[in-house]
Design a protein around this nucleic acid. Structure first.
Lengths: 234, 234
DNA sequence: CAGAACATACCATACGGTTGGTATATAGTT
DNA sequence: AACTATATACCAACCGTATGGTATGTTCTG
């Protein structure tokens, strides 16, 4: 029988639990409306622990944005959309992958750093910069595939690789807003569909390339029972 | 000499000034971070006036969303993008018009109801519904032109008119987020350019139709001196 | 003069943050 | 192996202020 069989959360991971709680609570309520007490409660710690790990609430905001960057980039790095040999296929597979992530409750699939950017862009530059680094850093990961696809398909474009990469993020962020307005994730998926159609048009490929429909992998959200792990029986 | 030459703001329009102040301050700081005192100060009134006109802060949020709907739909109704005879030209002119509105400080061109939706979607259903009505109500105004263009160009589409109308709003909202992340309106205009290219592709028209570049009209923002009312001299 | 449209002063609470203390793990000493 | 020193990682209680909201008074208008 090991010593220290305490059921309560392990000592030493309060910081991580605070960041995970912040990720979910802030996506629900927004940054400003989330109190430090809310964050402590979601992590199961007291304010002493909070202010031991973060000097101020804004400091947690910065840390949460960085935490988001690290966790999501790990997910994207190991995601299956990199597998196709054709670079355009990889771009389309990325968009299909993103579309697959949009499911469940709103706070489960929306973007933490996009949400925080909206709120703090004018009042908390440190948080905003951390969010911007997350958004544009992720967008930049798409650029090599887009560039390779452009060369392979001999596209002489009136658009830049960087702007298309950013545009994909804009569409996702905007889709999240429409989804939040009604609580319906279909509104976000719908815009991704238009984006996919746009990219296909840019590269002059038909509508039926790459229909792998990548399975949804784990996305930063508190473990919630995912309904329908098997397809419906009808 | 007329009686009541008081320089101070007219009696009777405190409500309007509160809504106008809310429009600008909330776009800067967000809804939750904007205090009632902030709103009173921006309108030049006291809390007595505020709570005379609005029972609660959330009630002002609803009223601000409705105010936004009314003022912006008046602007769009009288905007020049309705002039072209060709319906597709009107759609493209609308997007060009929206692009032209993106200028100046961030709080001047971003969308109030999009901002508020992000924050209160899960905690203030009344505000969220008012915002949703504004967003989707505006999107619906595009549907007749899109539908007419689709018939005229004989497009048998795999997309619905409604979804394309919504997609335009998603792109705009997403562009606003990217612009807020850096303070650079070019990031929003860039996404509108991609959207315009997408719509042209959907209707199979070349890149050089309708380049009117409609002059920017008045958009809900506090009167700020607009630089460069004349084009640069080079 | 009655009621609408404000202003002033005030209240209870929730908020971000601080203070002082305690349990735990680790390292060094004997 | 036992004991101490020390830093880490937290907890519980407290503090000043900002906040949403109220109660009451005042001014203007029809």
């Amino acid at each position: 029988m090991p010593r220290s069989t305490k059921q309560s959360p392990e000592r030493g991971d309060a910081r991580t639990r605070l960041l995970e709680g912040a990720r979910d609570v802030i996506r629900r309520k927004g940054f400003a409306a989330t109190s430090v007490d809310d964050l402590c409660q979601s992590a199961g710690v007291t304010k002493g622990a909070f202010f031991y790990h973060f000097n101020t609430k804004d400091a947690l905001g910065v840390a949460a944005a960085n935490f988001w960057s690290e966790t999501t980039s790990a997910i994207f790095a190991s995601a299956p959309y990199h597998e196709p040999d054709d670079p355009l296929e990889r771009v389309l597979a990325y968009l299909d992958f993103r579309k697959g992530l949009i499911d469940g409750e709103t706070f489960e699939y929306t973007c933490l750093v996009g949400t925080m950017t909206q709120e703090v862009h004018d009042s908390a530059p440190a948080i905003r910069d951390a969010c911007a680094a997350s958004i544009f850093g992720h967008a930049a990961t798409l650029e090599t595939d887009i560039e390779a696809a452009r060369k392979q398909h001999n596209i002489d474009a009136d658009w830049t690789v960087e702007s298309l990469a950013r545009h994909t993020q804009a569409v996702l962020q905007g889709g999240f807003i429409l989804a939040k307005a009604t609580g319906d994730p279909d509104l976000a998926r719908e815009s991704v569909d238009h984006l996919i159609r746009y990219v296909r048009g840019l590269f002059r490929v038909g509508p039926n390339t790459s229909e792998t429909n990548y399975e949804k992998s784990s996305w930063p959200a508190s473990k919630s029972p995912r309904k329908r792990s098997l397809p419906p029986s009808n």
